[in-house]
């Protein structure tokens, strides 16, 4: 083989690769193009319209999404819930993961295994018990110390938030991440007389930005997308999250496709922004967390 054909072969390979990427990206994005097309199509011609570019594009569906239902309030609710969960996860999960990775204590392996195993618990197992626990939460919503008399945490933003505060998967990924970082830094810091807390906060956590990105994205999207739990625990519209607000356009026998898709786009943008801002850290964080150890 001459240098020239190798070069030509490489160029061919690169061109094929780009072509394949383009095809894949188009295939993946076509349904979204459709979604956007529906969002900009006037209601009366929406269903079954096959033109990807609407004849008379309109922003009426976006206005409907923002005015017909209280989407802004729902966005606010979801943002509060998601950010509280992101903050809690980012504080607690890496801390626990670090301890599991660095500080061996009796039974730590078993505890970690149990925590990992909880990720396999189907939502259908815990939905009803969690609901009843929320109802009998002591000293909330008119309840007495023993959890009776009132409605507990039901129909509050707190109840929507609580089950997402610590994700078992985030603890596991953190443990993997810190295990992959090795113990040399800790030993050096220990020689300088630093305690475990200090070592964690000052040495390891600042190096764990990619991990934080992973934990943040997982907890943000997990909370943002949750549907069944807020559906059964909230009753008044002032506590609706985005997913609950949106399904009002998905009514039995009266699906309003235009506003539904416009609303779906609006509620996807924050998640997309979170992902784009952290994309690089996210992938490298996963590379450390998910695979090593």
């Amino acid at each position: 083989m001459t240098a020239r054909t190798i070069d030509g072969g490489r160029r061919m390979a690169a061109a094929t690769r780009i072509a394949l990427i383009a095809v894949a990206a188009i295939l993946v994005l076509v349904p979204f193009a459709w979604m956007a097309s529906i969002a900009f199509t006037p209601a009366e011609q929406a269903f079954g319209s096959i033109s990807l570019i609407p004849d008379n594009p309109t922003t009426a569906n976006f206005e409907a999404a923002l005015t017909q239902i209280d989407l802004l309030r729902a966005l606010g609710n979801s943002l509060v819930v998601a950010l509280v969960c992101v903050a809690a996860n980012c504080l607690v999960a890496p801390l626990a993961g670090y301890a599991f990775a660095r500080l061996k204590f009796p039974g730590s392996g078993v505890v970690l295994l149990v925590i990992v195993a909880t990720t396999a618990i189907p939502v259908s197992v815990t939905l009803i018990p969690l609901f009843l626990m929320a109802k009998t939460f002591p000293l909330a919503g008119g309840n007495d110390l023993f959890g009776s008399g009132g409605t507990g945490l039901l129909d509050t933003l707190a109840v929507v938030t609580i089950p997402h505060l610590v994700g078992a998967m985030n603890v596991f990924l953190s443990r993997q991440y810190f295990a992959g970082m090795g113990s040399e830094l800790a030993e050096a810091a220990r020689l300088d007389g630093a305690g475990e807390w200090r070592i964690y906060w000052r040495v390891y956590l600042p190096l764990a930005r990619p991990l934080i990105a992973v934990v943040a994205i997982f907890s943000f999207t997990g909370t943002w997308d949750d549907f069944l739990w807020p559906l059964v625990t909230t009753t008044s519209q002032e506590h609706y999250t985005v997913q609950l607000a949106l399904v009002q356009f998905n009514a039995t026998g009266n699906v309003q496709y235009g506003p539904l898709m416009a609303g779906a786009i609006l509620i996807t943008l924050p998640v997309l922004a979170v992902f784009l801002l952290n994309q690089r850290s996210f992938i490298s964080g996963l590379a450390e967390g998910g695979t090593k150890g």
């Binding site: 990206a25 539904l260 509620i267």
Partner: peptide, 25 residues
């Protein structure tokens, strides 16, 4: 980065909305 993000998008749009798009398809 843009390509990776594009390929990741289906994962972050709510399953209900995405299912509606496919119902349409």
């Amino acid at each position: 980065g843009a390509v990776r993000a594009a390929l990741y998008i289906p994962n972050i749009v709510s399953l209900t909305a995405v299912s509606m798009v496919w119902l349409w398809i």
